[in-house]
Design a protein around this nucleic acid. Structure first.
Lengths: 195, 195
DNA sequence: AAACTCATTGACTTGTTACTCATTATATTT
DNA sequence: AAATATAATGAGTAACAAGTCAATGAGTTT
């Protein structure tokens, strides 16, 4: 399949547009990025964008889904199912750091974006919540972790991480908030939930 | 001062515009609310908006500042300085609930708004962080609360609350997330931090 | 190699919205 | 009461950005 030059080229352009879109969304913000910006950075004409995606929303949806499958795949690779909770949380942060620019924009802007973006957001969260849930329950049974509802343990962790990400401008003027605070946050959270 | 009819009227219109703006921002979203919407709901012409505020950003800034002083004043009224940490957190939620629509939009959209909005945001957070800090330290000294850095105790609380607010669409389809989860969240947080 | 297909182009159209300004009506001053 | 000042009006302007489409030229088919 795709042996013919035209199809290959078209497919390549599409992939390239998505790649550039993800990059631009991360740098400029999702809502603030214009279709013309993406075209320019991808070295194609403005019209080409609409030859591949019928509307801006289509492009956005495709980019978010592409991002979603990339990050969930990476998280799956990073997480060892039999690890301790602490190791899983550490892997979680490692994964987020690799995708930090876009991930940051996604959690900041999600509520202002088309509804279908939420599907991807939920998928990403489910990926990690599943593993955290299992590890937390295990350590809870072993008496390592305090007796608290698993979903609240999870929400507390995500809440803390997202709080630092969404307020990254206040926590550090430039650079990655996650890199800077990962150890402090992980240590604090573990201290908090262990008996 | 302001004895003359014209000045009174002008001042009244200005206050009314701010009031309507805050209401509309809460209902429609801050970025999604157009100057024409505010004019319409305030029953004034579109031009009148610009007779009072030279730009949309000016209006936004004034509205956010007005909101900030209202909510911080109310929080001060609600918080009893000598209360337990639990009571202070409860008062905090009570205060947020009274201003929930706008507060929700503010924490969702803050990063996309003009920089000066952040000043008000920080002021609101400082108000509550001050009281929580004192109460937490007190209970920490009394051995009621686990030995953890106060700023992390605070960030965990705010992170949890903000997580529920910003993901309100996922936690409950309509109505106030804070009303629905206040007891669960407060109970969980107290369980988490007490020895 | 001629006919045809289609990815790409970029100037153009359309819709939106912040902001302007000459005009009007009403209050204040002389 | 006449002259003046100004709050409010709303039709009009300008800028921006998404989306369109006839033209182009390279690739594919016959």
């Amino acid at each position: 399949m795709l042996k013919n030059k035209r199809q290959q080229q078209k497919n390549l352009t599409r992939k390239h547009l998505l790649e550039i879109a993800i990059k631009q969304f991360g740098e400029t913000g999702i809502l603030a990025t214009r279709t013309a910006d993406i075209a320019k950075h991808a070295n194609v004409s403005h019209g080409t964008v609409f030859a591949h995606f019928s509307t801006q929303e289509d492009l956005l949806t495709a980019a978010v889904e592409e991002f979603g499958s990339q990050i969930t795949q990476r998280l799956h690779e990073l997480i060892d199912t039999n690890s301790s909770l602490s190791k899983i949380l550490d892997a979680h942060i490692t994964g987020l750091i690799e995708f930090e620019p876009f991930y940051t924009r996604l959690i900041i802007e999600r509520r202002l974006l088309p509804a279908n973006v939420t599907n991807t957001y939920v998928m990403i969260q489910s990926t990690i919540s599943f593993h955290i849930g299992i590890a937390a329950q295990k350590e809870l049974d072993q008496g390592i972790v305090r007796k608290l509802p698993v979903h609240l343990l999870y929400n507390t962790w995500i809440g803390l991480i997202h709080y630092y990400i969404t307020n990254g401008d206040l926590f550090c003027s430039s650079g990655s908030v996650l890199k800077r605070y990962r150890h402090e946050l992980l240590q604090h959270y573990i201290d908090l939930i262990t008996i």
